[in-house]
């Protein structure tokens, strides 16, 4: 597990959202440690909390997979490669940053990272958008962020306050109508 997160931390550029599709590939597609639904839930929580999305995601994945030790392993695996390379660069390689070849490579990579982020959002949206309601709720929040520059915290709070009662009632209804068996499996998730 440490190796998986270490590799992801070492090989992902651009940070934050660009790490999501890579972890999706490693944990859901390639190793099947997590289900699509598991992963979507984790990403929702990791993004709704302040801090580095990638580290939050790693923390929650580790937690789901192996409890407290798992989350520590995942966070360290994710952070160690970037901390080490950053210290090495700050100490020895800062001069090379503006080398034209390095610059060209980075610009091309950045364009691909933009695609990677878009792909990650697509993966999330495909699994998270289960009903028209999600789209209808996203539209005003996005408009608020884009046109009015609303603070992200405000978006999350609005979603919790407005959406919370609906989700709550739905979950309650589901628990009341579902058979004991499915209730049990839901708890076991």
């Amino acid at each position: 597990m440490f190796v998986v997160f270490f590799r992801t931390g070492l090989l992902t550029f651009g940070g934050g959202y660009s790490i999501l599709p890579v972890l999706h590939y490693e944990l859901v597609d390639s190793r099947r440690w997590l289900s699509e639904q598991n992963y979507t839930d984790i990403v929702s929580k990791a993004t709704a909390i302040p801090g580095a999305v990638s580290v939050n995601t790693a923390f929650l994945c580790g937690r789901v997979l192996r409890g407290k030790k798992g989350s520590a392993t995942a966070v360290l695996g994710m952070a160690i490669p970037s901390v080490t390379t950053m210290i090495l660069i700050a100490a020895y390689l800062f001069e090379y940053v503006h080398h034209p070849g390095v610059q060209r490579f980075m610009k091309g990579a950045a364009a691909a990272v933009a695609a990677q982020i878009t792909y990650g959002v697509w993966l999330y949206a495909r699994s998270a958008v289960r009903s028209v309601w999600v789209v209808l709720a996203t539209a005003p929040l996005f408009a608020g962020a884009f046109f009015l520059g609303l603070h992200p915290l405000l978006l999350v709070a609005t979603a919790l306050v407005v959406g919370g009662p609906f989700v709550y009632r739905k979950a309650k209804l589901k628990a009341a109508t579902s058979s004991p068996e499915s209730e049990y499996s839901e708890l076991m998730e």
């Binding site: 929702s44 982020i117 949206a125 996005f142 978006l155």
Partner: peptide
């Protein structure tokens, strides 16, 4: 909670793109 915040998370992600 993760279901309630989905729309906000999507909006944040679109802004990130």
């Amino acid at each position: 909670i993760q279901d309630a915040v989905k729309p906000a998370v999507l909006a944040l992600m679109l802004m990130a793109i």
